Amino acid sequence: MRVFVLEDDDAIGMGLKYSLEKEGYEVILTKSQKEALKDWKKGFYSLCILDINLPDGNGYDVCRFIKEKEDVPIIFLTANDAEVNVVMGLELGADDYVCKPFRVNELMARIRTVLRRSGKDKSSQNDDNIIKAGNITIYANEAKVLVKNVLTGKEESVELTALEYRLLLMFCHNKGTVLSRNSILEEMWDVSGDFVNDNTLTVYIKRLRDKIEKNPANPQLIKTVRGLGYIMER
């Protein structure tokens, strides 16, 4: 299930992306009105989370643009819960609003409620939450990863750490694209909010390969592109 996020604050935007991906959502993050209007695709997203105050406009105009094309659920993020702001957002067709600063658990609960009301609850969208790549199957609703055993042909559950799981999802969401080490490092915040360093990334790549590759010494799922980074080809 894809979520469209418009947030110009880097810290809030990356935090939202991380939290949503941890819940199994696929996230497209934009930072300006211009970028949002350019990246929007009809029929592609199940939910939109829009910041109101933007450097080159406002979330209201983006909401109007989206609603003219498709009736997709929208949640506004606002630093001001003044009644006029709330009313304006709801009159434009927004389904809910959340005031900053907000608790992640509260936002996730509101997202589930909005999706349920709209009939787009991710529990009823099974196909969107099953990700296949090579010999692995990911059930995003449960954060469950199955790997097909070469000898038996049966799928077996593998235990991944939170960072290994996030790393795997990153590759799955960018199939066919070379991901540089820097781009991966920028995304891979650890649970305490610190950046994962370059040496640690090498360790996580190795551990992930050990768990999902048929032959970790000759990886076929997550390949190294010398001098550039890594790629998941299929």
Rank of each mutant, 00 (worst) to 15 (best):
L6P: 06
D9Y: 00
A11Q: 09
K17A: 07
S19E: 09
S19C: 06
L20P: 07
E23F: 00
I28N: 05
Q33T: 07
Q33Y: 03
K38I: 00
D39M: 14
I49V: 11
D51H: 02
D51V: 00
D56C: 07
V62E: 01
R64Y: 11
F65D: 00
D71L: 10
D71P: 08
I74M: 08
I74A: 11
I75H: 12
L77E: 02
T78P: 07
A79Q: 02
V84I: 12
V87R: 12
G93T: 10
A94E: 01
Y97E: 09
C99N: 08
F102P: 04
N105L: 14
E106V: 11
L107S: 01
M108K: 12
I111F: 13
R112K: 10
L115F: 12
G119F: 06
K122S: 11
K122E: 08
K122F: 13
S124E: 11
Q125S: 10
G134Y: 08
N135W: 02
N135Q: 10
I138Y: 05
Y139S: 02
N141F: 03
E142N: 13
L146M: 15
V150C: 01
T152K: 11
G153L: 03
E156Y: 03
S157A: 10
V158W: 09
A162N: 13
Y165L: 14
R166I: 11
R166G: 11
L167T: 03
L168H: 07
F171S: 05
C172M: 02
H173A: 13
V178R: 05
V178D: 05
V178A: 05
L179E: 01
L179A: 01
R181D: 09
N182E: 10
S183I: 14
I184Q: 01
E186V: 14
E187K: 15
D190W: 04
D190T: 08
V196D: 05
N197R: 12
N199Q: 11
T202D: 15
T202P: 01
R209D: 13
E213Q: 10
K214G: 01
N215C: 09
N215S: 08
N218R: 14
L221Q: 12
L221E: 06
K223G: 01
K223R: 15
V225I: 15
G227T: 12
L228E: 15
Y230W: 13
I231A: 14
E233S: 07
R234V: 10
